[in-house]
Design a protein around this nucleic acid. Structure first.
Length: 755
DNA sequence: ATTAGGG
DNA sequence: CCCTAAT
């Protein structure tokens, strides 16, 4: 039992006695837990570490040896497990018998994902037969582990197991997953689209081609000869007939790894999109969608009028990063963003939708370095101590994380000459009349003039994605490289709190937004490398004031108390010409390196409400081409997630109006009915939970008791604080009375009983 | 799921 | 804000 201190604030309203207060949770002092903060690992550091590992196929002299060791263990365990399951799988054993081994659990999770989600990405193929699975596995050549990785990604992206254990492994590019296959995967290429995220694990030794992987993940067989024509086969035709017709104009593209040389990876953007189907068509809004992705989408949309309060939108969070010069962002910006993104823990509530509605259970990049928590908890010896982790992911692994990585638009040397003219012409046309555009480009030129965007960073083997010049802007948006997505997501995290409801991806060329998704790169002039175009992607709020009204404020983001403080951010990535003297990129292998200009990818945050982000704001349009579902995001922590990587919620200080609403509600309801307070005053403020309100009340009481000089943050009017103290005193007294009444009743009943 | 309280 | 015991 805790004795409440006597209130002594000089308020005459209520006499506050020293009242015993029953504690519902009398807890003794617990041993000081290791601060989670100590265990935080910057996601980007993990990434860097993993990326480094990817490059180090041999040797353990790496500074990340500990990291490697960790993953080695993980990999071994899981591989064992997976192989066992795979074997049974091949035997047609649809249901696995669960054993008690740790590996078994991991495998179980993997297996579940594979079985349930790999083929039935969109819910159409769940009737696949076991032997077909096996077949697919073998064709992948990745063995079970890689397959499962891919499967997990897909499973997650398609929201098929948001509450299942596979979420645990659906960490997107989670470094653990990468590390998981360290040494077995040469490259990771990821593409995303409106309805799915695709990750390709490229394993050189197995000569696995991306074309070979697709068929089974998409429930459709797609085979393609080297640089040849795409041949589609639909072994599961009956189950994939709802496949969307949406296709991209892109011709088959080539994805190579410069490290691997002529990489036998063949794929095409159009193939990637073959089975695309808008989620809404694939299935009606599912619970999962509503629970997981919608939350993600609408995160930050908290500035709604509550029952009694107009919640402020604190768009300028102290955690956010400012970029006063969006056009020339500091090299540190990305780094800062990523640091802010620093992951400490995951959101909770993945499996608790109701709670999730109150708590911010938005997506989080889940950089858990290990997927199978059960194994982790049982094999503590494999865990990396906080200290060790910090060491492992020390700055040495961040050497390339200077906020930029290098991109190199190139042209296929074999085609360049014959198509330069075409490219130039197209670009010129577009440059002179960007709005005109849309001239049909003869197909004969389409396949030859390719724009290759490569991103290299984090010591990862250079990934090169080659996109035909006739690819559409829309296809650009859905065909990013994994690293790009990495950064995207990282920065997303840093800025999401400042963004409104929903986000859009825009493509910006030389500061101008390319409004027409159907324009080809050629028409837009992106393929015209001589001009040193700056190609950028911008992520902007859904309700961004669209340009014709640059200063129009989104009513949803308006803060009742201080509208002038409204600031919203757009995040953009841009390929910027890099000074030639800084160019230190190795030539892109097998591409002739005919173009020597390198580009930096820079990330910038900008206040878009003042149009600082876009030199030509008039040209900026909201691009609805991609939705949040398409972004490589991973929701929240899951039960089995590694506890060390739970993301902390973004701090959102209570505004004065919120405080007022809280005080009002507490005055009416008391201090012990936080749920009611929540419902009454903060029902529509999804980011305020009753726990938050309770906490805020606690701090309010504290604030009211300390001297104004000691107070921090946005000052709360003294009058409000007085009300806080008064209400607190009153309800404390009330509670005490009730309690004594209860005790009295109990005692009297005892007496009666005794009598 | 809520409440209460420590960190 | 987080965590968690106790309801």
């Amino acid at each position: 039992m805790v004795l409440q201190r006597r209130l002594d604030y000089g308020f005459s309203g209520y006499e506050v006695p020293v009242v015993p207060r029953a504690s519902r949770s009398p807890r003794g002092r617990v041993p000081i837990r290791k601060k989670h903060d100590n265990n935080r690992i910057r996601a980007i550091e993990i990434l860097a570490c993993v990326a480094g590992e990817l490059l180090q196929d041999t040797g353990n002299s790496s500074p990340n040896a500990a990291c490697r060791e960790e993953w080695d263990n993980i990999f071994e365990n899981t591989t064992k497990c997976k192989q066992g399951h795979h074997q049974r799988y091949k035997e047609g054993e649809a249901k696995l018998s669960k054993t008690d081994s740790c590996e078994q659990e991991i495998c179980e999770e993997n297996f579940t994902c594979e079985f349930s989600h790999v083929p039935g990405l969109q819910g159409h193929h769940q009737s696949y037969k076991v032997n077909e699975f096996s077949h697919a596995h073998e064709n992948f050549g990745f063995k079970t582990n890689s397959t499962s990785y891919f499967a997990d990604q897909r499973a997650y992206v398609n929201e098929k197991c948001a509450s299942g254990s596979c979420l645990d492994r659906a960490g997107g590019y989670s470094p653990n997953t990468l590390g998981f296959f360290r040494g077995h995967v040469d490259s990771v290429i990821e593409t995303k689209s409106e309805s799915k995220l695709s990750t390709f694990l490229i394993r050189q030794s197995d000569k696995i081609s991306f074309a070979e992987q697709w068929p089974y993940f998409n429930g459709r067989s797609v085979s393609k000869g080297p640089f040849g024509k795409v041949v589609r086969d639909a072994p599961f035709r009956g189950q994939v007939d709802s496949v969307t017709e949406r296709k991209y104009e892109a011709k088959p593209s080539i994805i190579r790894s410069s490290k691997s040389g002529i990489f036998p990876v063949k794929g095409s953007l159009d193939m990637v999109e073959l089975n695309l189907k808008p989620p809404s068509l694939v299935r009606p809004k599912s619970n999962l969608k509503a629970s997981s992705f919608r939350r993600w989408k609408t995160r930050g949309s908290f500035s709604r009028r509550c029952a009694n309060v107009e919640v402020d939108s604190r768009d300028v969070d102290e955690n956010s990063v400012r970029c006063p010069q969006p056009s020339r962002p500091s090299p540190n910006i990305l780094d800062q963003s990523i640091r802010n993104f620093s992951v400490s823990r995951h959101w909770r509530g993945a499996s608790n939708l109701k709670r999730g509605a109150c708590r911010r259970t938005d997506w989080k990049w889940k950089p858990a370095y290990f997927n199978g928590r059960s194994c982790h908890t049982r094999q503590r010896s494999q865990r990396i101590s906080p200290y060790r982790r910090r060491k492992v992911f020390d700055r040495s692994s961040l050497s390339t994380l200077d906020g930029r990585f290098h991109c190199k638009p190139t042209f296929n040397s074999s085609n360049k000459r014959s198509n330069d003219d075409n490219c130039t012409a197209g670009a010129t046309n577009e440059a002179s009349s960007s709005a005109a555009g849309r001239q049909a480009v003869p197909d004969s030129t389409s396949g030859d003039c390719n724009v290759k965007l490569s991103i290299k960073s984090f010591k990862v083997p250079e990934l090169l994605i080659e996109i035909p010049a006739t690819a559409t802007i829309g296809s650009l948006k859905v065909s990013d490289i994994a690293l790009f997505a990495f950064l995207w997501r990282a920065v997303m995290e840093a800025v999401t709190a400042n963004l409104g409801e929903g986000l859009h991806v825009g493509v910006v060329l030389q500061g101008k937004s390319v409004r027409d998704d159907n324009k080809t790169l050629l028409q837009t002039g992106i393929c015209h490398d001589e001009d040193h175009h700056s190609l950028g992607f911008i992520l902007e709020p859904n309700h961004a004031p669209i340009r014709s009204h640059p200063h129009a404020e989104d009513p949803h983001l308006l803060s009742g108390s201080r509208p002038q403080g409204l600031m919203r951010r757009a995040m953009s990535f841009a390929l910027q010409p890099k000074p030639s003297d800084v160019c230190s990129l190795p030539p892109v292998m097998n591409l002739g390196s005919s173009v020597d200009n390198s580009f930096d990818v820079v990330c910038s945050l900008a206040d878009i409400s003042t149009n600082n982000a876009m030199p030509d704001s008039q040209a900026l349009v909201a691009v609805p081409a991609i939705t949040m579902e398409a972004l490589p995001v991973v929701p929240l922590r899951q039960k089995s997630g590694h506890p060390e990587f739970v993301q902390r919620r973004t701090r959102r200080p209570f505004s004065v109006s919120e405080v007022e609403a809280l005080v009002q509600a507490v005055e009416e309801l008391g201090t012990g009915r936080w749920r009611d307070v929540k419902l009454r005053a903060f029902d529509s403020a999804k980011h305020r939970t009753y726990v938050d309100l309770k906490d805020k009340w606690k701090t309010l009481v504290h604030t009211a008791r300390i001297s104004p000089q000691q107070r921090r943050g946005e000052p709360v009017p003294q009058q409000l604080l007085d009300r806080v103290l008064a209400a607190h005193a009153f309800w404390s007294h009330h509670q005490a009375k009730q309690q004594s009444h209860y005790h009295f009743k109990a005692a009297s009943s005892e007496l009666i009983k005794d009598a």
